[in-house]
């Protein structure tokens, strides 16, 4: 389980997070939603331990990750798979090498076992044939899927998605959404998705948290979202629906 308590973060006197209390249950798909610049990605980087809070705690399975020595923190991070906004594939490595990298670095697997594992991951993201290609030869959607294959290669307990649909066409975006749902189901992982795309949220999330100006304004199931009396949330949802048409469900 992931929990944050009274999380504050200030960059150069500019408060970005202002007391975020959040609880994400094991096995659920939780979406962190909000406008651009609301603090969503900063919150996600706190959950992974990439940014230290100015105040407050981040607890992963009851352990405050910010009190851990660096070596222990790195061990905790090995339970995480992260899909970054721009995929963050290592551009000096092929798609195969990107997915193989965590396996070669953190496991004692033989070359043959690694090859099998990489092929399994690439097949799960429906790209079994792209192994030899370099990131520069892949489309945006393919990069996201290879990034996802890399994120799941160590069979993580938690998968974080930072704006997984940004910059993708609607069809590819739907494919990524389906993939996120499918992986959550098949791997029994906890998924945390940072997005401002309500279409995705309504399609794949069990619960969502709405963050606005560094504060968590609302948390609930996606079905409860339209019944909320939080005007800022409703404005955000309506603006998204106006842009994308009616949601899937």
């Amino acid at each position: 389980m992931i929990r944050t308590e009274n999380l504050h973060k200030t960059f150069n006197d500019n408060p970005v997070l202002r007391g975020v209390d959040l609880e994400i249950e094991d096995g659920e798909t939780f979406a962190i939603i909000g406008r651009s610049g609301s603090g969503k990605s900063v919150l996600m980087k706190h959950l992974i331990g990439l940014i230290k809070p100015s105040e407050g705690r981040v607890l992963i399975d009851g352990v405050d990750i910010n009190t851990l020595p660096y070596r222990e923190l790195r061990r905790v991070r090995q339970q995480f798979g992260v899909l970054f906004q721009g995929s963050a594939l290592f551009d000096s490595m092929s798609a195969f090498e990107n997915v193989a990298f965590p396996l070669k670095t953190f496991t004692e697997k033989s070359e043959k076992e690694i090859e099998e594992e990489v092929n399994r991951c690439l097949t799960m993201v429906e790209l079994p044939e792209v192994g030899p290609l370099m990131p520069s030869e892949l489309s945006g959607g393919m990069k996201k899927r290879v990034g996802l294959a890399r994120a799941i290669s160590l069979r993580p307990q938690y998968i974080f998605y930072d704006e997984p649909n940004t910059g993708l066409d609607p069809e590819t975006s739907n494919t990524i959404d389906d993939l996120i749902s499918d992986l959550a189901e098949r791997l029994k992982v906890t998924s945390i998705i940072v997005t401002h795309d309500m279409h995705s949220v309504l399609s794949i999330a069990d619960r969502a948290g709405f963050i606005h100006k560094g504060k968590l304004h609302w948390v609930g199931t996606v079905d409860e979202m339209h019944r909320s009396d939080n005007n800022i949330l409703l404005d955000f949802v309506k603006a998204n629906e106006y842009q994308i048409g009616r949601p899937k469900r």
């Binding site: 790195r74 061990r75 992260v82 970054f84 670095t105």
Partner: peptide
């Protein structure tokens, strides 16, 4: 620098590497 701005360094850290 390119690795930093394209989050590749964050990716290394996030997977538990120093």
């Amino acid at each position: 620098g390119t690795m930093r701005v394209t989050e590749q360094i964050d990716a290394l850290e996030a997977m538990g590497l120093n």
